[in-house]
């Protein structure tokens, strides 16, 4: 049984490969070795492309489609809506940006941890409540920040955790590859349980498998609202966590794209659309 299933899978996979899953558009002329490389060569490729394709501007959107990666597990910024499509503040924002830029926005829902490494091959940009960090900046460029956030700590309602020193030696639930994950790694003596989804981390907090969860402010408030009797969400400031900036991650060195996106954000802020989205998605959810 198992064997024939595997055979079937092998055949169908070959069929998919033969049918073609679409060549990565911006690296079509680049050497094969470069498809798996990072920062420096990618930057070269991008600048080469921008000179050869001077009329079309950014290589990423030369076909009129902006492919956007997200991880729809992060309410209210992104989540899977009732219609099965990714919805949330970031989704509304990127669609508005796409409208301003005159390109079609295509959303790819994927794991958060693989977003950054997918930029330039599977996706053009990523918007996923992503904090600007120095490590990420080595690999990708960021747009202007569009939102200030702080990490929150979710603890059981009866927990005594209240300050930075209380975090030492605890079991901490996080979503893999998020800022909370990095913060937790740096806490002395911590055991970090990383999940694909933040909600799983919260579930295991409820199950008693971890002592606390570190997650961004807005999702933390959503989760705390879901289980008001069981957990409380604490502001990360009382643990000494720094304020972070959310921004859109983009291929390194693609200045045209960065300009286009930053201009769109400016326009949206100027015409009031941005504030409307904040009110609708973020403040409305609290």
């Amino acid at each position: 049984m198992k064997k024939s299933l595997v055979t079937l899978l092998a055949i169908s996979m070959c069929a998919v490969l033969l049918a073609g899953c679409g060549a990565p558009k911006e690296t079509a002329s680049a050497p094969a070795a470069d498809t798996t490389t990072d920062a420096a060569p990618a930057a070269d490729t991008a600048s080469d492309d921008s000179t050869t394709e001077s009329t079309s501007g950014s290589a990423a959107i030369s076909d009129g489609v902006l492919t956007v990666g997200t991880n729809a597990e992060f309410p209210p910024f992104e989540y899977v809506g009732d219609d099965g499509q990714p919805d949330g503040f970031d989704m509304a924002l990127i669609k508005a940006i796409g409208e301003k830029m005159g390109v079609e926005v295509k959303i790819e829902n994927m794991e958060f941890a693989s977003l950054v490494s997918s930029i330039g091959n599977k996706i053009d940009v990523a918007i996923a409540g992503m904090t600007v960090t120095d490590e990420r900046k080595e690999v990708v460029d960021f747009s202007d920040s569009y939102y200030d956030a702080v990490q929150f700590v979710i603890v059981p309602a009866d927990s005594s955790i209240a300050a930075a020193e209380d975090l030492v030696g605890k079991t901490i639930g996080v979503q893999l590859g998020t800022t909370g994950d990095f913060l937790a790694q740096d806490i002395e003596g911590s055991t970090v349980s990383s999940y694909n989804k933040a909600v799983d981390a919260v579930n295991d907090l409820l199950n008693g498998r971890s002592d606390l969860v570190i997650v961004d402010k807005n999702p933390a408030l959503v989760f705390a609202g879901m289980y008001p009797d069981d957990v409380v969400a604490l502001d990360g400031a009382q643990f000494g966590f720094e304020v972070e900036n959310y921004a859109i991650a983009m291929p390194k060195g693609d200045a045209e794209l960065a300009d286009a996106i930053n201009n769109a954000i400016k326009e949206l802020k100027a015409d009031g659309t941005f504030d409307k989205l904040v009110a609708e998605y973020i403040e409305g959810s609290n």
């Binding site: 693989s114 893999l176 590859g177």
Partner: peptide, 20 residues
């Protein structure tokens, strides 16, 4: 890794989420 165990595959994912 789905349930937060750090097995070989999960570790590879964790490292790549650090190094991108």
């Amino acid at each position: 890794g789905y349930v937060s165990l750090s097995d070989l595959t999960r570790v590879a994912n964790q490292v790549s989420s650090r190094t991108y």
